[in-house]
Amino acid sequence: MTIDANGMHYTPLNKMIRQAVASGVREIVIDNVLGQRFIANGLRSNVRITINGVPGGDLGMFMSGPECIVRGDSEHAPGNTMDNGTIVIHGSAGDAVAHSMRGGRVFVRGDIGYRGGIHMKEYDQKRPVLAVGGTTHAFLGEYMAGGIIIVLGIGHEVAVKDRGIGSGIHGGEIILRGDIEDRLLGVGARKVIFTEDDLNRLSPLITEFCERIEVDPSQFLDTNYTRIIPASSRPFAGKYTWE
């Protein structure tokens, strides 16, 4: 099924998507998307939605199951508080990508803005993944409480050159291609060596990500990564004293 979203407001657009899903459609293409927010907001099911254009903010917020493929850039916070499913963005994305994401995967081929993966969290079987092909701006993985962030830095000298990486991280891990200057680490973040074991554990994910963003995975299957983890799961426990 194909929808022409030219000039359409997001509420009727989402209504059409929801109706189609309810009637059993499993493949939707939306053309001429430009700035419509909240696409696939709170949507359940295993539908695949291809978005041609630039969706507005909060793409796939609260989404639980579907797959959204964006042929274009995306504005702020795709994957916001997302529960399950996949978002693949073939362009770049704005600030707060995967904000508070609880499960599923957000794959971005290009760069992302500030505070990517802020407060991603994991629980039980749910382990969210944010993978970025390009680079990111400051405060990547801020407050991160779980899940995995991977940044490959394709087309950039270093994967991340902005400050505050993993500031306040108390769960999960951040995997960055190459080495990262210590001064860029945020409070409570610790740099550890990326081992063969890590590679074995993560190579299926790296491979899948590369395939989804259409780059050759073989060049990324080595241990030339930096792994950033929490220094403690309670980084601020020592901050307070009782009256």
Binding site: L34, G35, V54, G56, E75, H76, G94, Y114, R115
Partner: peptide
């Protein structure tokens, strides 16, 4: 200084665009 509001830049020849949203530039 810590980027609490969005800003996107677009260029096309002699034209430079600065906007809160990319879609607005594309329009």
């Amino acid at each position: 200084r810590i980027k609490l509001r969005p800003l996107v830049v677009g260029e096309n020849g002699s034209r430079l665009y600065i906007s809160s949203e990319e879609a607005a530039i594309r329009v």
